[in-house]
Design a protein around this nucleic acid. Sequence first.
DNA 1: TTTGAAAACCAACAACT
DNA 2: AGTTGTTGGTTTTCAAA
Lengths: 160, 160
Amino acid sequence: MMAVDDIDSAIVRELQANARQTNRELARAVGVAPSTCLERVRLLRDRGVITGYHADVSLTALGREVQALLHVQVRPLNREVIEGFKSYASGLPEVLSVFVLAGGDDFLVHVAVPSVEGLHAFLMDRFSARREIVGFRSSVIYQHHRNRVIDPLDPAGSAR
Amino acid sequence: MMAVDDIDSAIVRELQANARQTNRELARAVGVAPSTCLERVRLLRDRGVITGYHADVSLTALGREVQALLHVQVRPLNREVIEGFKSYASGLPEVLSVFVLAGGDDFLVHVAVPSVEGLHAFLMDRFSARREIVGFRSSVIYQHHRNRVIDPLDPAGSAR
DNA sequence: TTTGAAAACCAACAACT
DNA sequence: AGTTGTTGGTTTTCAAA
């Protein structure tokens, strides 16, 4: 996988901040000709650096006032159970995100539901029946901040 | 805040899946005229249902092979300390996401770094010096699945 | 690889059905 | 809401540097 130079980095940064700007605006922002910019963006997609463009939506506008993180323990710890639970959880409409954690026995599931009552209903209806789940903890989320723009890091360690 | 009808829902779903399609493609996909579609999208942005458009990037392509979740406890539990740590963590380039959790004493910080060594360096350099941190646990992430398309939920509880 | 120019295409806004 | 038409800007391709 080829390295990204400074222009590529700038393009990636710009498109993370605003994916709907025109190719012209993008070209001007990073200081190349529009046709060059178009080609660069195409290559970044082909190389898998840019994986897609997605609209962000307000969860509250979609009727999901309550978010929570669910720490889930499953047993037995084999590939079938892990993959099975992961794909089950990923397919639920309430679920935003699923983390499979080292340590072996833990999932973290990020959910957004209409209300605290809805959270309870979710846990009862979606989780209680699953035999592989041997325990879980719920934490309601007060605030959530997500960094939309992710910059490359030098291999060494910390910041560039 | 006005309700979203079926056409709005379809538009929101489409733009979450692919934010760079043209207005014409979008109109055809949801089955309305382009002018109607354009107006709907404008209103969805004005109402705050759609909050932005962002490119997704491959973390490994940006030199971040290792992801981890950091459970952080801070003290004392007052607004200054909570907000201070939250904005500090949010501003670090390694940090993807910061959750403030109920229960009062917990943050969850999602980081992506070049290597396990980089994770260690991050914890030492960025966290150890912070006096308000009284403890943390790190969990390396084996897999992470994020649902890009989020549908509205009925207020009742579970799926539509 | 990058660029400039040409052709095809699209957005945006009307006026009207 | 939909359709059509018009204007101005944008994407896309390609030959040449």
